[in-house]
Computed example of a mutant assay.
Amino acid sequence: METERIKGALVIGGGPAGLMAAEALLAAGHAVVLAEAKPSLGRKLLMAGKSGLNLTKAEGFDSFCAAYGAAADSLRPMLAALPPEAVSAWAEDLGQPLFTGSTGRVFPVAMKASPLLRGWLGRLRASGLEIRTRWRWTGWDEGMWFDTPRGAVRLRPEVTVLAMGGASWARLGSDGLWAGLLAARGIAVTPFSPANAGLCVPWSEHMAAHFGAPLKAVAFHAGGLTSRGEAVISARGLEGGGLYPLSPALRTGAALQVDLCPDLAEDVLADRLARPRGKQSLASHLRRVLRLSPAVRALLAEVARPLPGDPRALARLLKALPVPHAGLRPMDEAISTAGGVAFAALDAGLMLRAAPGVFCAGEMLDWEAPTGGYLLTGCLATGLWAGRAAAARLAAAPFP
């Protein structure tokens, strides 16, 4: 058993939130030790980069904040301190040219995370960051205990920032095991649940020919939430960015409806469907008058056969197609999780009220957001906020 005192700050977790907290503390002139359970840093960030690394989204601030749903008010000051344009400037300062897509999503031109992470870690190391990998946090008792390559070690820092992620993609480091350690100390932790997850739909064998096909130009509705975007028909159901914003409703069992023609009013649809079709089949008629894709027609036939012959009844169905489902995919398959440390357990600087000097950031906090740049910006913003608050405590200065 070994005990080591740290003059300055300890950051636990080497993802975006932890690295940003470390950067804020270093910028304030404080020494920082960063402990990470895995052999390397930023593993989930690198995985996200395989699909392009959506850093943030260029849109009005109020609209941007609204994407965080129930946590929007709690996160608003943190997002204001690191809004989308500041995230873009930060990435460009790391030598990463950016571009903005047609939907406002912001990406590095390189379309991957590795160049940004290399530049970031290089800058942090040059600023004095000490990194210790394969250090797994196991709890606290007059300090922070770790299982390390050299055995059990207790670190006694002046302040600590916890940034250990949520509970999805455990193999990348976010296993959520820390929740039990905090709950044991009486800290309120909202149970984890999947967010931005695929939807389980028990298809018949007839859908196999369409696995991998996208549903485009449709709108999804569940529990009062609406999203327009693309989803893919998979062997296990539906998945994709168009569906993910409905996760809060779908995981509570809300019914899913799909508007197959969101740009056409029901009356217009009915008029088109009423056109003479002669000897054409109904499927051919739908393709001709509405230009429905094979994937959309297959979905319609899968969940609503036999289709109504009356044009108005069919139009109503096309505008609100019910798709039976069996809930979201398991949590470890989700892109992110809802749940975590309740904001009521934290002060304005994200410090635990029950543990003075210990701050929380990133996906450890009880918030969620859809994909589209919101997740990464939320992690960076809360990391920066917690790091600045921890630095203020070290300097005995007020915050915020």
Score class of each variant (00 low, 15 high):
Ala315Ser: 07
Leu199Tyr: 02
Ala208Phe: 00
Ala391Phe: 04
Ala283Phe: 10
Leu46Trp: 08
Val258Ile: 15
Trp367Ser: 05
Ala265Gln: 11
Val106Thr: 08
Ala188Lys: 14
Arg353Trp: 11
Leu317Ile: 06
Ser234Leu: 12
Ser114Gly: 04
Pro308Lys: 01
Leu98Arg: 06
Arg251Asn: 03
Ser127Ala: 15
Leu26Asp: 11
Arg288Gln: 15
Glu266Trp: 03
Leu129Tyr: 05
Val258Met: 02
Ala209Tyr: 00
Glu142Ala: 14
Gly60Arg: 05
Pro84Trp: 12
Ala27Gln: 13
Phe192Trp: 10
Ser293Thr: 14
Glu333Val: 03
Ser168Thr: 13
Arg272Gln: 07
Ala170Ile: 08
Ala304Ile: 08
Arg277Ser: 07
Pro306Leu: 01
Trp178Pro: 15
Ala334Ile: 05
Gln257Ser: 15
Gly151Tyr: 11
Ala231Asn: 00
Ala35Phe: 12
Ala28Pro: 12
Gly151Trp: 13
Asp175Asn: 11
Glu302Val: 07
Leu394Arg: 00
Leu46Arg: 11
Arg171Trp: 14
Arg272Met: 06
Thr371Asp: 10
Leu307Asp: 01
Ala183Gly: 11
His30Pro: 14
Arg312Ala: 15
Lys112Gly: 05
Leu124Arg: 04
Ala48Pro: 03
Glu59Arg: 07
Val341Gly: 13
Gly42Asp: 09
Thr3Glu: 14
Gln280Asn: 10
Leu25Phe: 06
Cys261Gly: 07
Lys50Cys: 06
Ala9Gln: 03
Met20Phe: 12
Leu365Phe: 13
Arg305His: 12
Glu158Leu: 13
Ala219Asp: 09
Leu124Lys: 02
Pro214Cys: 01
Pro308Met: 01
Ala188Ser: 15
Ser204Met: 02
Pro191Trp: 06
Arg228Leu: 03
His285Asp: 08
Ala9Pro: 05
His30Ser: 12
Ser293Pro: 02
Val268Thr: 15
Arg136Ile: 03
Arg105Met: 08
Gly327His: 01
Gly101Cys: 07
Ala170Gly: 05
Arg251Pro: 11
Ala71Pro: 04
Ser174Glu: 04
Pro108Ser: 06
Ala348Val: 14
Ser336Phe: 02
Pro77His: 07
Leu94Ser: 07
Pro16Leu: 07
Glu59Phe: 05
Ala344His: 15
Gly373Pro: 09
Cys65Arg: 13
Arg123Tyr: 08
Ala110Trp: 00
Cys360Ala: 15
Gly241Leu: 13
Gly362Tyr: 10
Glu85Ser: 12
Ile335Gln: 08
Ala35His: 08
Ala390Glu: 00
Phe399Tyr: 14
Arg312Phe: 13
Arg291Glu: 12
Gly229Val: 00
Pro356Glu: 06
Tyr68Ser: 03
Gly383Leu: 09
Gly119Tyr: 05
Gly186Tyr: 13
Leu300Asp: 00
Ala342His: 12
Ala80Pro: 11
Leu199Gln: 01
Gly15Leu: 10
Phe399Arg: 02
Phe61Glu: 14
Gly339Gln: 08
Phe343Ile: 10
Glu85Tyr: 12
